[in-house]
Design a protein around this nucleic acid. Structure first.
Lengths: 146, 146
DNA sequence: CTAATTCCTCTAGCGACTGGAGCTTCAAGG
DNA sequence: CCTTGAAGCTCCAGTCGCTAGAGGAATTAG
């Protein structure tokens, strides 16, 4: 039985995030001390490690919720978990494809930007004129870098 | 001079998004009709096309704001715009690398998930135990696919 | 015993939109 | 000229996955 700070350190998940996971029902409400502080067990640590890893893999919390409910019932067929992973794989592959196109376009922009002033800067120019690139503008998906 | 709907159609940016861009100061407040409806010019269309394209390339709005202020001053050196694009390229490359690891792990998971029940399913197992994969857990960045 | 650290709850904010409610204005047909 | 329906307006709330801060209580180390 250990407090939230130790759980945070052990899993690499920040303290407020752990409380947030409890709030949205991904983690069970833990026992408390006489002074109302959370006390966690090894079982919760493992559950949180599971969540952390799935997040690292890019699973949205809803998919993780699903996976957790599956793993809570180990006798059930694996097909559902398999389906989730398969969907996730397809999404990841699509993302890679899209980002590869972006990367190539950014590289092209930078390759050709050898001028000194904005007026002749390819970066600005390419961004301002769609015809100068081969990028697919059908995609509406937003990426969230940095 | 045309209304917001035509601007939306021409650029592929949704109407509420255009109003949002105006609200946060990315687009100038346009003229209005007697009845208070927005009227746009070709110049705004081009500015919005620029924004749209940069968003497609994954630039965050703050970077776009910077790029726009650069392009308003064509005599200035290009290095700043170049820097922004270079940072963006680095971010995209990092994302691709990360997603590639993820993809490989998902593939491995699915390859090994030939069993019938959760109990023997690698999907759950791999997600539950960090030692079963080669993924870098130093990264805290979250991906948000689908 | 005190001081530093950790913990608590609660609220608000981030980015980048998206959607809805409830109203007004515009353009076209009859 | 009038009606109708699409498109416009403002304002507010919600999305996802956290993150930060206020203001206080509890725990722990010295």
């Amino acid at each position: 039985m250990f407090p939230i700070g130790r759980l945070a350190k052990a899993t690499g998940v920040k303290v407020p995030t752990i409380r947030y996971y409890e709030q949205i029902g991904l983690l069970p409400a833990p026992e408390r001390t006489a002074g109302n502080q959370r006390l966690y067990t090894q079982a919760t640590l493992e559950r949180l490690a599971f969540i952390r890893h799935a997040r690292d893999l890019g699973f949205p919390l809803e998919a993780i919720r699903e996976l957790l409910s599956l793993s809570d019932d180990p006798a059930r067929p694996c097909a559902a978990a398999d389906e989730i992973a398969r969907r996730q794989l397809a999404a990841v592959e699509a993302r890679i494809a899209r980002l590869t196109v972006l990367r190539d376009e950014l590289r092209r922009m930078l390759d050709h930007c050898a001028s000194d002033t904005i007026a002749a800067c390819r970066v600005i120019e390419v961004l301002g004129d769609h015809r100068l690139c081969a990028h697919d503008h059908g995609a509406t998906e937003a990426d969230h870098p940095t």
